[in-house]
Amino acid sequence: MVPEPFEIVVKRRDTTDTWTFELEPRSGEPLQFAAGQFTMLSAGGAGEVPISISGDPDRPERLVHTVRAVGLATRAICDADPGRVLGVRGPFGTAWPVDEVRGMDVVIGAGGIGLAPLRPALMSLLARREGYGRLVLMYGGRSPDQLLYPDELADWADRGFEVLVTVDSAGPEWLGHVGVVTRLVRRAELDWTATAAMLCGPEVMMRFMVAALVDQGAQGENIYASMERNMQCGIGHCGHCQLGPTLVCRDGPVYCWSELAPWLAIREL
């Protein structure tokens, strides 16, 4: 239950309230992880929070986390500069089905900071580009300045991802799409019955995204989503992250939608 020390070696500001950290383990032992997993992250004595890993699973030497300052613990993390040490426990949870969907077209559907947990999957897909059909990223943000990883979006496009970006609102300088991310679904003309989707974002965004995908002909068993609940221990002992018959820290955060759908239909589950 004691966190391992990881030193901040790179800190990059993504948006007004979001930073990406690259961390190196003091032990020298890389943290091997699977795309989609999370760690319990802490700074000093300000409490521990579950944060998805957003780095490349093929390069575990540096642990990468994108963190939005929204509460006491995340604010303390975001205040920490290079040279400071963060506490890490993990990795925990289930992974994106990167290997399972080989041979299929893959849609990555991200809303806001939901792109961070999907970045490892995206990198794994690109590293094995020839193993997949079309790769499409559908990414929605609040406004152009709130988009994560803008330089990488262009790089991913160069390397074989169809990158579709939309924002809720923008000024006249924005030449891209405006509107909710679900509207991008209709734009991508895919062979939907052979398309897998990996989704992460606000729960309401994922619900509408699934509805749009299924409407086009995608199969529920090919849709995966990363869920957020109040994970506190990461090891299935504290009870807080219950989602119906599952524990998100143990049986999630990545779930197959067809298994989850009946439960998400229940309000305040």
Binding site: S42, G44, G47, E48, Q232, C233, H237, C238, G239, H240
Partner: peptide
């Protein structure tokens, strides 16, 4: 009933 929470105290 086994639920627990953690608290950092400085």
């Amino acid at each position: 009933c086994f639920c627990t929470t953690v608290e950092d105290v400085t």
